[in-house]
Amino acid sequence: MSDAKVRRLVVGVTGATGATYAVHLLRALQGVPDVESHLVVSPAGVLNIKYELGLTRQEVHALADKVYSFRDVGATLASGGFATMGMVVVPCSMRTLAAVAHGLSDNLVTRAADVTLKERRRLVMLVRETPFNLAHLRNMTAVTEMGGIIFPPLPAFYHHPATIDEMVQHTVARVLELFDITVPGPHWEGTASAGR
């Protein structure tokens, strides 16, 4: 892949439930030839991947083009001089949301998110918690005010999903559309075709 044509997307995986969204997103990116995925997984993210999906750290790392250590705050992702199209945190824990909302760059996920915001690049956070308390809501507001996008991965039912995978694929396709990346998946066709 030529560096002149490559589009880099940073993917942070943290310790919230919903590891399947991260794996589906990384697999979808493998089918996009001009996009390079740059992956950082937190220790809690590794635990969730193993618990929820039965996958090892190495199996998930193999889905990305580049992988970085969670503690390596000196990695290229920690600098605004490293050009990316943005970052998605999938899933995003409330701890990670709070750290980003308050500018606490204490690991590579939160530092890369901070860099994304300061460089005015797109940051999408798939927050996973319910119900929300006031601190969660205020942190989401703070990130939104800084230009981030809060994207709770709520399933849609208008495309009549038959499986959990179909619901996850729909969410992943919608997230990637925010970065002008098109992948296969159901799309809203409007109500005119619903009765046919």
Rank of each mutant, 00 (worst) to 15 (best):
S69Y: 09
L63N: 03
T76C: 12
S42H: 07
S37D: 08
F70L: 02
Y51L: 13
V35P: 06
G81C: 14
I49K: 02
A83S: 14
K50S: 15
L55E: 03
E52T: 02
S42W: 05
L47K: 15
V46G: 00
L55T: 12
V60P: 05
R71A: 14
A83M: 12
A75W: 05
S69L: 12
L53Y: 06
P43M: 05
E52Y: 12
G45Q: 06
V46S: 04
G54T: 01
Y51H: 14
A78I: 02
G54Q: 11
G54F: 07
L47A: 15
G80V: 07
V46F: 00
L77T: 05
S37N: 06
E59S: 08
Y51C: 05
K66A: 10
T76N: 15
D65K: 07
H38N: 13
D65R: 06
G74L: 09
A83E: 14
F70R: 03
V46I: 14
V67H: 02
G74E: 09
K50Q: 13
F82T: 13
G81L: 10
Y68I: 09
D65S: 12
R57I: 02
D34P: 04
A64D: 02
V67G: 00
R71Q: 15
D72T: 10
A62T: 00
S42G: 06
K66L: 11
S79Y: 04
S42A: 10
L55G: 00
T76P: 12
V73R: 15
E59A: 11
V46K: 10
Y68W: 12
P43F: 01
Y68N: 04
A62G: 11
L47G: 10
T56G: 12
A44W: 11
D72S: 12
K66V: 08
A75D: 08
V46W: 04
H38G: 01
V35K: 07
E59H: 10
G81V: 10
I49L: 12
T56F: 08
G45K: 02
V35N: 07
P43Y: 01
S79C: 05
T56C: 07
A64P: 00
D65V: 01
S69V: 08
V73G: 12
Y51T: 13
G80C: 08
V73P: 04
R57N: 10
S37H: 03
V46R: 10
G74R: 13
F82L: 01
V40I: 14
V40R: 09
V67K: 03
F70N: 11
D34C: 06
G54W: 10
H38W: 13
V60R: 09
G45M: 04
L53F: 04
L39S: 08
L77I: 06
K66N: 14
Y68V: 09
S69Q: 14
S37C: 09
D72Y: 02
A78S: 14
A62Y: 13
S69P: 06
Y51M: 12
